[in-house]
């Protein structure tokens, strides 16, 4: 187990290095951001001076080495646009995204999984059909369109909730519902499919024949065996919420990391993009490790050595 953890820790480190390198290379292939950063009336001399000051005139490999050395010390440089430490700028936005993503994940967990189980246990009843229709809509409609329609209905028509910005819980409802809708639907479907597969198994019949209560059969014998794909997917979805936040935050003008990232990509603000990606990547990596460790807990047939 310890060997496994050590190996995974190195793996995580490799993933983070890999991700930052790939982003560094991709972004620098887009070319030098000087023309984007400088005012249009800047002279050639001013452009050259800026380029030299930022180090954009040096070979890519030298720029990467300098960057990697500083990054290893947690310094990702100053934002080209805001002239502030890029990492700080991204971290500042993190609580807003965490609030949005956390609320959305709660919706996924508390609505998606139970609805999926119920739907599988009561096939071809109104519960099953209602859950499946909601799941189908959530799975089929694009996140940003759900957002637009929620804004149209609740903000423009009914005036119940604000269309954008951050503030009290009223500001949180629409973006969180928008962000969580897709994953909730996905989990509902997956939980239902996974449970249905298990419900037909021989040991389920045995459990029922033993006279166990329906709840114990469903949760103790059913869910416990159906859990592997569900937990895998929950991990993927939690990561996916971070990606989804990029679009949801743009639609609702939510001042989080995602909106910062999109702005930074368009403005070619390299250090900020690097910081956002590094933060997101760190979260993803920790999440994946947790999910893999959970496998062994859920399915004792899987052993790590």
């Amino acid at each position: 187990m310890l060997t496994y953890l050590t190996r995974r820790a190195f793996g995580a480190l490799w993933a983070l290095i890999g991700v930052t390198s790939v982003v560094f290379i991709i972004l620098h292939l887009t070319g030098d951001p000087t023309s984007v950063m400088m005012p249009p009336e800047a002279t050639q001399a001013e452009m050259d001076a800026f380029r030299h000051e930022q180090g954009f005139d040096r070979p890519l490999i030298v720029q990467f080495a300098t960057f990697a050395l500083a990054a290893a010390h947690g310094d990702l440089g100053l934002s080209l646009r805001h002239q502030e430490p890029a990492m700080g700028l991204a971290l500042e936005r993190l609580p807003a995204t965490a609030l949005l993503g956390g609320s959305a994940f709660l919706i996924v967990l508390l609505v998606g999984v139970p609805a999926g189980i119920l739907s599988a246990l009561r096939p071809r009843t109104w519960i099953d059909y209602a859950a499946r229709v909601v799941a189908l809509i959530g799975q089929s409609a694009p996140t940003y369109w759900i957002g637009l329609m929620l804004i149209l209905l609740f903000a423009v028509r009914l005036g119940w909730a604000p269309a954008s910005g951050i503030g009290g819980w009223r500001n949180l409802v629409l973006p969180a519902a928008t962000l969580g809708f897709f994953s909730t639907a996905k989990l509902m479907r997956l939980t239902r499919a996974s449970m249905l597969e298990i419900l037909g198994a021989d040991y389920m019949r045995t459990a029922r024949a033993k006279g166990l209560t329906a709840v114990r059969v469903a949760l103790g014998h059913g869910l416990r065996n159906a859990w592997l794909p569900i937990v895998t997917q929950l991990g993927v979805e939690l990561g996916g919420l971070l990606s989804g936040a990029i679009i949801t935050e743009t639609v609702f003008a939510w001042p989080g990391v995602g909106r910062l990232a999109v702005q930074a990509v368009f403005e070619r603000d390299f250090p900020v993009v690097e910081s956002v990606v590094l933060i997101a990547a760190t979260l993803f990596v920790l999440l994946n490790l947790a999910v893999d460790l959970l496998y062994a807990v859920i399915d004792p047939r899987i052993r790590y050595a």
């Binding site: 292939l29 993009v273 956002v276 990606v277 990596v285 994946n288």
Partner: peptide
Amino acid sequence: ARITDVQLAFPLVLLAVAIVAV
């Protein structure tokens, strides 16, 4: 697993946005 880890550690939308931007 290492390649998947790198890939999974990317926010997918951001990766696609970056690729298209390039």
